[in-house]
């Protein structure tokens, strides 16, 4: 028998409404609330062995604590699959379902599943972490949501291949999966062109994303006092590339000490970047990260100081999600080191 643990909030757990939203995590054997209906749909193959109930406010305001306590509770039952919700359009409940699914997936390495309304904030935050089945915006949709969950659970139970979002009813996660098409790309492009010309319905193979733009900061006020750091995606590394940063699709960044270094030379530094001709960067890496000029500017009193570390990775083909994560890590360290401004160089 496949073992399933189910997560629900205080309302569906029968504890109470908003006034009980601070309810701390509790685990009960077997199914509770919507788990009754869900269990009946899968009972020939699987069983809800335990249900975790937690108040929405408690979860959201104490997320790390809640997650760790709940994980401990779940672990005890050694489940094969984890289900949360459905949360419909309840925002904090949706976030809790998403967050706990993410934590369970990462820590227990088992399939996770939840369900909610596409506009629930939990979708945007966790759509890549869990299959989120689409529901209506209110609990009135429970009658439809449970059979959908049951059907999807059966697929997970039987280890079946999960098809595309429109076939399976989950909200698109934006995960791109390669396949070999019947026709070559050029022929598909001509087909698309003809459909467009005939004003027929067409489907793009790649929906263009909407980008978030970063507003530029105001200029640095006291530039002559400011501590400046260098961060680059131009791949400058100490000669020999000690961290083996990849020439494309980097899996890491490096942090390098330039204390006492006034000039980068062909003997001491080079680029690991595979997306541009490295000749000129290898001759003189100051061309990518201007250490020599910045040292002079410090001497001339034009800037306060140059931070003793620079951060470097190769930007070509590197996943934006990784770049975002590293950017956040680097920014945190720079702030802690008292850096006031950063020069970002690409190539």
């Amino acid at each position: 028998m496949i073992k399933i643990v189910h997560y629900i909030n205080q309302f569906y757990g029968g504890i109470g409404g908003e006034e009980f939203a601070g309810y701390k995590p509790e685990v009960r054997e077997g199914f509770v609330g919507p788990g009754l209906g869900l269990n009946s749909l899968i009972k020939d193959q699987a069983e809800i062995v335990a249900t975790v109930i937690c108040g929405d406010t408690f979860f959201n305001e104490n997320m790390d604590q809640a997650k760790s306590e709940i994980i401990t509770m779940i672990k005890k039952y050694n489940p094969d699959i984890f289900v949360a919700g459905p949360a419909f359009n309840a925002g904090r409940y949706g976030v809790a379902c998403g967050a706990i699914c993410q934590a369970v997936k990462n820590e227990l390495k088992i399939p996770v599943l939840t369900a909610m309304y596409p506009e629930n904030p939990g979708v945007e935050m966790f759509v890549k972490d869990a299959y989120i089945l689409e529901t209506t915006n209110s609990a009135a949709g429970m009658r439809k949501a449970l059979p959908a969950l049951g059907k999807f659970l059966k697929k997970l139970i039987n280890n079946e291949t999960i098809g595309r979002p429109e076939e399976e009813g989950y909200i698109p996660r934006g995960i791109r999966v390669n396949y070999f098409a019947e026709k070559r790309g050029s022929s598909r492009a001509v087909d698309l062109l003809v459909k467009k010309l005939h004003n027929e319905e067409f489907t793009t193979e790649f929906p263009m994303p909407l980008f978030d733009n970063v507003e530029p900061h105001n200029p640095v006020e006291n530039i002559t006092q400011a501590k400046i750091a260098i961060v680059t995606s131009g791949g400058i590394v100490p000669k020999g590339n000690p961290d083996h940063i990849e020439s494309s699709s980097a899996s890491k960044y490096g942090k390098y000490d330039i204390t006492g270094v006034d000039d980068l030379t062909a003997e001491t530094y080079e680029t690991a970047h595979g997306g541009y001709d490295p000749t000129y960067a290898n001759q003189d890496s100051d061309r990518v990260i201007p250490v020599d000029v910045l040292r002079n500017m410090v001497k001339e009193g034009k800037i306060g100081s140059l931070h003793n570390y620079f951060y470097s990775t190769t930007g070509n083909g590197t996943a934006v999600a990784d770049a975002k994560k590293w950017g956040a890590e680097i920014a945190k360290e720079l702030v802690a080191d008292g850096v006031n401004a950063v020069i970002l160089t690409s190539t």
Partner: peptide, 10 residues
């Protein structure tokens, strides 16, 4: 489009 490879969203 010299080859047949493509990608779908999941």
């Amino acid at each position: 489009g010299f080859h047949n490879l493509s990608a779908k969203g999941y």
